[in-house]
Design a binder for these strands. Structure first.
Lengths: 252, 252
DNA sequence: GACTCGTATTTGTATAGTCAATTGAGGTTG
DNA sequence: CAACCTCAATTGACTATACAAATACGAGTC
């Protein structure tokens, strides 16, 4: 969040992997520390000239690599200033729409969070089936509530693969929401979303302060890391009050 | 839809507008006939060499323009083949998720469509307010139903600004859905979406064959053309059965 | 101290070429 | 006829260089 004015030294740049076009190698080399969080937002990455010398290539090649990072929003570039890691560069692809804290903050309200329940499940056929994994895979289950101005905003049910994220079982999830923790500690390579409308069950109605049967907007998010399922989250919103939104201008 | 193997002749290329960087001018010049539908999908656009000669520039500049069209999905490029206008290049930004015909086809079912009602409304305070336009603006109202295997799939309520699309009032909307007609005949520069869950009203329940109060997924889409509102569509889906989905792999 | 202006730094754009990779099409050969 | 080969067309990648545009920063001025 804060603008850390750190500058990256050339020696901190990961080596090239030798696979594919040079500009893509350079791109990967630079994106790795960004998405892994080693270069936090605000970090200045070396100038094109320095990178040109470091990678022993031409400026156009380095330029192409960085430009492509810029068009994807991972970095911002300005003449004379340099290239800076974007705020929220890592979260962007997943969270641009669905981070509850963000949604609440954007509406100008106060965000808070309450952990409801956690459980370790060593063999649960029903959950394993939903999660689409082996029945012997140990799972971690969390339920929590996100609030806007102390009123329920989103009810979150989540299942986490303990083989993919063993440390979460010992984490203090009262202080940090499971979504935030996962984002900070577990990488993913793929995510899939599903949006539907469902009637509130008794449990959901209870937590969201609704009547059973009231319409809820439900977002399901699954993430994988190299084909290993990481987490399945189901997020319930009171149907009428809140809604997801998106807008765009075509770039033509 | 069909692969028209048409080739674009150099003389069919719109002139440059002289504004901004040359590669963006070229990009605009090429994207205009694509998004306006003059070059249908499958059209081969001239080779880089030809464009280089036509625009009297270097190949790198032309390359940058076309590459940027390619990364946005408007065209596809392959060595020796050339550059081809993508299937659905125009619709992509709006319809990639929400075209009912597409959704039905993708699920392997049979798509059909039924017009329910149309009306011309010369001054309607309630609608005008929702549409956020002047009360004297003439509006065109449509209700229709999209079906999957003859079962209701989506109920569509739509308001269209007749000043932006005067000809739709005389169109045979039994044959073509208002969404398709608008896409083919009216340009837009901005779109905004809103997703929510709502209880089915009596009307909606009737058309979707639900019970009043059943949860429905509601997508609202508004489009503008240069700040002039074009259309407001409200699309109702039976909540449980169907759902929107999206997936992605980060490009790192 | 506040304002102005020049300068250096960094990215943005453009040129003009070279060689590599892909693959359609046509011709050759068994 | 089928399998293979060659050739040519087209995009992909890369180099080396030049000048333009934006702007932070510091020097000079009032």
């Amino acid at each position: 969040m804060a603008v850390s004015e750190a500058k990256v030294s050339i020696s901190a740049i990961p080596p090239l992997d030798g696979e594919g076009p040079l500009w893509l190698q350079i791109r990967r080399s630079l994106s790795l520390p960004i998405v892994s969080g080693r270069w936090p937002s605000g970090t200045r990455i070396p100038t094109e000239i320095l990178l040109t010398a470091h990678f022993e290539t031409s400026r156009m090649t380095v330029n192409k690599a960085i430009q492509s990072l810029a068009t994807e929003g991972l970095v911002q570039r300005r003449p004379k200033i340099g290239t800076i890691v974007t705020e929220k560069a890592r979260e962007r692809p997943v969270f641009e729409i669905w981070d509850p804290a963000d949604m609440v903050h954007q509406s100008g309200a106060h965000y808070s969070y309450r952990l409801i329940d956690t459980a370790i499940i060593s063999s649960a056929s029903e959950l394993s089936r939903q999660f689409n994994c082996d029945e012997t895979t140990p799972l971690f289950q969390v339920q929590c509530l996100h609030l806007s101005n102390k009123r329920p905003f989103q009810f979150e049910e989540r299942v986490i693969n303990l083989e993919a994220a063993p440390k979460i079982a010992h984490e203090n999830l009262h202080a940090v929401s499971p979504g935030q923790w996962l984002l900070a500690h577990v990488a993913y390579t793929e995510a899939r979303h599903l949006i539907s409308a469902r009637a509130a069950s008794e449990k959901v109605a209870n937590f969201l302060e609704l009547t059973v049967g009231d319409p809820c907007l439900v977002v399901e998010r699954r993430t994988w890391n190299a084909n290993v399922p990481v987490t399945l989250g189901r997020f319930w919103y009171p149907g009428g009050d809140h809604s997801l939104h998106g807008s765009f201008k075509p770039s033509w």
